[in-house]
């Protein structure tokens, strides 16, 4: 509040002396803050609102390969509701999201608890587990595709060397889970790091008090540790949901949507860029957007809330 008064006084002073220059007017807080945000607002309008309107518009048309558009009203939406090619990938995306998040949280929590102590080389370990996180998912998926190849892949060679049967990692029954496993492999270091940081920052005296009171490990974990970690668990879940429903790169590096692994974004991509069916592609895109926006709205409200709580 005090600062605002200062701004007003400064403006008043300049009024008394001469007519304020355009720069002075714009430096007035009221305009200045909008001026700073203006480039971003323009970018958002161009890059967000325009595609949205475009897709919404095209979703009412049947667009041929030559570009001729025929208005067909809601037919694309009717087709979509009856199209298993839409519902199955949607269900699969949901499945992948749940599997990956649950696994990442469990592994992350386990490793967080394990490493939440002082031991030799702890900083090196904590640094090394971050290594896969920033590597391009596409490249990692190609590498995993190679590692899990049936004949020459390293994993199957090890399995057969120790007397186990080779696994068909990419057959239609299991390929989706293989993709989950690759994703979990890349991302469990994320939840482990976040939860470890959370565990390190928990107040120690509470745990000591619980120990004095004779509380057992599992009880302490369930009644103290878990509730105190829950904001972090929520953040991880929300962020990972956001990334997982957009999963695309690992599909390109492995199955390319074949063997029952087509996910939401791959379906939009295939319809729009392989079949070049812009009308129906736009309809699917709008639906995909609609679903993710709902999840996004929930998640970012929570994220902003957490940001405000920690500051």
């Amino acid at each position: 509040m005090a600062r605002k008064e200062n701004g007003d006084i400064a403006l008043l002073d300049s009024h008394l002396i001469r007519k304020p220059s355009i720069w002075e007017v714009l430096s007035n807080e009221k305009y200045f803050k909008w001026m700073l945000a203006l480039p971003l607002i323009i970018v958002l309008l161009v890059f967000m609102i325009y595609p949205l309107i475009f897709c919404l518009y095209k979703s009412f048309f049947q667009v041929s390969l030559s570009g001729n558009a025929l208005f067909i009203g809601l037919d694309n939406y009717r087709t979509m509701l009856r199209d298993t090619g839409f519902w199955i990938p949607l269900g699969r995306t949901f499945q992948v999201t749940v599997i990956c998040i649950v696994a990442e949280l469990l592994i992350g929590l386990g490793l967080g608890m394990l490493w939440n102590r002082d031991f030799k080389g702890q900083n090196i370990i904590r640094g090394l587990i971050l290594m896969p996180l920033l590597v391009a998912p596409l490249i990692l998926s190609i590498v995993w595709n190679f590692l899990l190849e049936y004949n020459i892949g390293f994993v199957n060679q090890v399995l057969s060397a120790i007397g186990l049967a080779r696994v068909k990692w990419w057959d239609p029954q299991g390929a989706l889970y293989t993709i989950c496993a690759i994703t979990i492999w890349q991302w469990f270091p994320f939840s482990a790091s976040v939860l470890l940081a959370g565990l390190k920052s928990l107040p120690k005296d509470v745990f000591e008090a619980a120990k004095v009171d004779g509380a057992k490990g599992w009880f302490v974990f369930r009644k103290l540790t878990l509730p105190m970690l829950s904001p972090l668990i929520i953040i991880i879940t929300l962020l990972r949901t956001m990334w997982l429903i957009r999963l695309f790169d690992p599909l390109y590096g492995t199955t390319r949507g074949a063997v029952n692994t087509e996910l939401l974004d791959w379906m939009v991509y295939r319809t729009s860029f392989v079949y070049f069916d812009i009308g129906y592609g736009s309809t699917l895109a709008i639906m995909s957007l609609f679903l993710t926006m709902i999840i996004g709205a929930i998640m970012f409200r929570q994220l902003i809330k957490t940001l405000n709580a920690t500051n």
Partner: peptide, 13 residues
Amino acid sequence: ASRMFPGVVASIP
């Protein structure tokens, strides 16, 4: 929220 905007959706227009 625009981060949620699917890349494939923006790609078409």
